[in-house]
Amino acid sequence: MSVEASEVQRIAHLARLAMSDEQAREFAGGLSDIFAFVEQLDGAPIDGVEPMAHPLDAEQRLRPDAVTETDNREGFQAIAPAVEGGLYLVPRVIE
């Protein structure tokens, strides 16, 4: 399968990756190779096979409903790029 640069741009946008047209063209080659490689799966004998999401056939453990965490806002925000008044700042979101 061949991936066009425009398709790379579409995926990059969905994944929120800035990408110039030149980069998109460069990535298109590698991505095409990968998808062509992955096409080997097409012949796999998987009729009636249940998908396997996880290596172990286990079930979710449940945590008792109790507060176990204490406030560490200062610790977490010491490494934040932009905070004010305890809030994380981003460019204005218009709704």
Binding site: L14, R16, A18, G30, L31, I34, F35, P91
Partner: peptide, 26 residues
């Protein structure tokens, strides 16, 4: 906001990481 996301991620990740993110997204 879009610029914050795309540029932070575009600058922060190298090519192989971007490639795999794109394969996975696709």
């Amino acid at each position: 906001l879009m610029d914050l996301y795309t540029r932070s991620r575009g600058e922060g990740f190298g090519d192989e990481v971007k490639r795999r993110i794109m394969v996975g997204t696709y």
